[in-house]
Design a protein around this nucleic acid. Structure first.
Lengths: 329, 329
DNA sequence: AAGCGCAACGTAATCGATTACAAGGAACAG
DNA sequence: CTGTTCCTTGTAATCGATTACGTTGCGCTT
């Protein structure tokens, strides 16, 4: 493996010059630059990242800690982050905290150890509750999950508004008893719950909320129990995420209920299957790719300008009405 | 930031002793070990990874380069890799090559620069064609995509067999003209194509194969054209991957055809939506999580024993028959 | 011609760990 | 009592880059 010394010798210059050329610094003559570049690819030289990082104290690496990698929402977000990072020759360490605060902490410590330039995080609720950006030695941008009390760069959906519009739509479709299945373990779930409550309150209706862990399996089991026990059935159920919605549809299948005839349905995340199933499902679509893109752009800006004012990008969900929320016949 | 020197001073020992304690090496007295540990957490010391890596020439980091992160198959594989890595305190760099050989090469170079301990890769076809493990300075395990001529640790499905069984099932269900939509840009797609051809040949039927890029959008467009042009329609279509299958179902929807009545359907990957849509879709399920687990276990073994014989794990797909492949009425 | 400024370049210190090697000391055998 | 062995510990070299600082030489001003 060629070292910088070998390149210097081969080019007949000092290691400092080689380093300067590679870093693109000024103060190098064109002829030297030329000679160095020639030697670099004559020897196939590649700088040793460990040495560079040790000395320079920089890494050009970003961390991305998502709370559930199986969730297509985070998939899309990751892809966007990846795309922008690739275009800017940045490395990304993608980690899956799995909604587990311990894993989340572990990965944040790992980011510290790795001395990353910055981190994009979708925090668990306990993490968000105690979050202070000063606790971390790197800039951090929150994505998908944040609340108004936290001082942090963040990219989120306007969850309250989105849930409110979705719920109102059901009310306007004539539904009265509307249940809400949500992941209580995330800020997002809670805010959507708030929006749901607000919409119901506005119409003088009373809520039936069901908190659960936000996985397909959990939603399926909880929903099955709910549907078997809850008599009379509500008119409609709203799911606070795509995974919960999926479990819900599976549960309906399990207990032999049909939507929207037996019970209307709506949820979040415009996953492909929501328009393939029959009847197709009414959802709020999130601008997932855009959220990821915004997150990494915010992070890059913060890295450039550490003292910049806190910025928050709030995006609007798009209500897509399909058959699952139709008025009962 | 405390350095190892500070710890040594605080504990009244040499840096060598601290290093030895932290590395868990023998040759340290219990009392010294005790004192060091106490100082370590009194000072909140964390070793500098860059320095450690520079000196030791090791990283405890694995690379995982998947060809399409939006594909739920690779999702599941990644999750399995992640889980095992987390349990063993290994870092994982997850990269998305996006079926693009340039991106793939870029990431492989990056892995070299990062001096990773090993890499798990689902190679593109050009990569697989020229693959020689000696070309890389780290151990590598292939996942999902491999062929019999390549000398490499690998974890794959028995693609030929799976496609054959799937096609045979359609034949037995009375279908005669069976089309095959496949991603010709991967070894997996090709092998499934081979299996399809073999099954048809066995029944004396002639093939109608359609190669395409393995994305939902592409499959949808190609299938739409195919369905509008191809007259008379085939009796059935088989998709070589979950994403293609999805595009296919969307295309049927687009042109107003019904399955299995107008045309039967089957494919790969048991994604949740395949059993939610009506009629539900016949598929070959892959043991995705198991494939990821096997891949990282193979890699860890190879890292431990670099000269071990080449190992290949071939897993069997499970045929799940649903309504989409039913005999025509 | 002396002095000054500036660009180009080189020398050597430095980042913070690991680890080869040497040395000190205790235990034990002869 | 001396020599050998083994266990523990410390000193200092080392990994391969970046970068502070000093030097050189050229051009220009006065």
């Amino acid at each position: 493996m060629a070292r910088i010394q070998d390149v210097a010798k081969h080019a007949g210059v000092s290691v400092a010059s080689v380093s300067r050329v590679l870093a693109g610094l000024p103060g190098v003559s064109d002829t030297t630059r030329e000679r160095v570049m020639r030697s670099v690819d004559a020897l196939g030289y590649r700088p040793d990242l460990a040495a560079r990082r040790l000395r320079s104290r920089r890494t050009d690496t970003l961390g991305l800690i998502v709370s559930d990698i199986r969730n297509p929402f985070f998939m899309e977000v990751s892809r966007a982050v990846e795309d922008v990072a690739y275009a800017n020759r940045l490395r990304v360490m993608l980690c899956n905290a799995d909604e587990d605060p311990d894993k989340e902490s572990f990965y944040l410590e790992m980011m510290r150890d790795e001395n990353v330039a910055g981190v994009i995080l979708s925090p668990t609720l306990p993490m968000l509750a105690r979050y202070k950006s000063a606790d971390y030695p790197f800039p951090m941008v929150l994505v998908d999950r944040c609340n108004s009390t936290v001082e942090a760069d963040a990219v989120v959906l306007d969850n309250v508004d989105a849930a409110m519009r979705l719920t109102r739509h059901l009310i306007e479709a004539g539904q009265r008893k509307i249940a809400f299945f949500y992941g209580a373990g995330s800020a997002t779930g809670q805010q959507r719950h708030d929006g749901y409550l607000a919409a119901l309150a506005g119409a003088g209706l009373s809520p039936i909320a069901q908190a659960l862990r936000p996985t397909v399996e959990e939603a399926r089991v909880v929903a099955r129990n709910f549907l078997e026990r809850q008599k009379p059935l509500p008119d409609a159920i709203v799911a606070s995420s795509g995974l919960i919605l999926l479990g819900l549809v599976e549960a309906l299948r399990d207990v032999g209920l049909r939507y929207p005839d037996d019970i209307a349905l709506a949820g979040f995340d415009d996953m492909p299957w929501t328009r393939l199933v029959t009847p197709a499902i009414t959802v709020v679509a999130q601008p997932t790719y855009e959220m990821g893109r915004a997150a990494i752009e915010l992070l890059r800006a913060r890295i450039q300008q550490p003292e910049q004012v806190v910025r928050r990008v709030v995006l609007r969900g798009e209500l897509i009405v399909r058959e699952s929320s139709s008025p009962r016949k």
